[in-house]
């Protein structure tokens, strides 16, 4: 199928949702406009929120930047620690034996479960949230890197060995490139998890950010601003994973026809 046709279908799909939304709100007035504002009202709130700081103490932009900063900080920390750790665990039996039991114990704790402890330790500032995001980002990074390395084909390792590859060359020139698609899918899962954990953390303990903005507007009954915040979270999340997709295409070669 042509790319332009695919794009057209996507555009029509989004347009129909907006149209349906408009019909049941401003069109047929099925709901009170206070509880379920129309797309037009939400767009107005969006434009308004670009400059106005009431009722949540910041413009849309300041909340977005606050959220992005803390999310990316925690996310990158998760990658930088999680990916090498997962690779090491898969490649060195001893590291696996030492780290695996600890990891298996910590892993079932949902990231949001760390929030109370983090508030107690470092307050409700950015670092508490960054830690919570780190916890949610690091797990998929470890799991996927580990699995990816473990799934390296035996024949590929044989080939490398018959060419006289050292163990280090086998890791860097065979196992890691072969695990790369799996590692990238971990990075994607991780990104989604970070973004979700961020919003949860901001709703529970924060002074700014998109999650905080949603929570504040619930208290004052501004459904339009809530929807603006939600849509912002959706759009930015989609953009971030699209960027990651581009990075993946740059690094992962030869896997798609």
């Amino acid at each position: 199928m042509k790319k332009s046709l695919k794009r057209l279908i996507s555009a029509i799909s989004i347009a129909s949702v907006l149209l349906f939304w408009y019909l049941i709100t401003d069109g047929l007035h099925l709901f009170s406009s206070y509880l379920f504002p129309s797309p037009v009202a939400v767009f107005k709130a969006f434009v308004n929120k670009l400059t106005v700081t009431v009722p949540d103490g910041g413009t849309l932009f300041t909340h977005l930047v606050a959220s992005l900063q803390v999310a990316l900080y925690g996310y990158f920390l998760g990658i930088v620690i999680g990916v090498p750790l997962g690779i090491l665990m898969a490649w060195h039996r001893k590291v696996d034996l030492i780290v695996k039991p600890i990891f298996d114990l910590i892993r079932p704790i949902p990231p949001v479960g760390w929030i109370p402890l983090m508030i107690l330790w470092v307050g409700i500032g950015q670092s508490a949230k960054a830690m919570v995001i780190f916890v949610s980002a690091v797990t998929p990074c470890i799991v996927n890197s580990y699995t990816g390395i473990k799934q390296t084909s035996q024949v590929h390792l044989w080939v490398a060995q018959t060419f006289g590859a050292t163990r280090r060359q086998m890791l860097f020139d065979v196992a890691i490139p072969s695990a790369l698609p799996m590692i990238f899918s971990g990075l994607k899962v991780s990104l989604g998890a970070s973004w979700m954990a961020l919003v949860a953390a901001e709703m529970l303990a924060s002074t700014k950010g998109l999650g905080y903005m949603i929570q504040m507007n619930r208290m004052v009954g501004r459904a339009d601003n809530i929807i603006v915040g939600m849509l912002m979270i959706g759009v930015v999340g989609a953009i971030l994973s699209a960027i990651l997709g581009l990075v993946e295409d740059r690094f992962v070669k030869g896997r798609h026809v």
């Binding site: 590929h156 044989w158 080939v159 490139p177 072969s178 992962v252 030869g254």
Partner: peptide, 8 residues
């Protein structure tokens, strides 16, 4: 399957 799929 012995070729490295990630290499040209």
């Amino acid at each position: 399957t012995a070729l490295f799929p990630w290499l040209s």
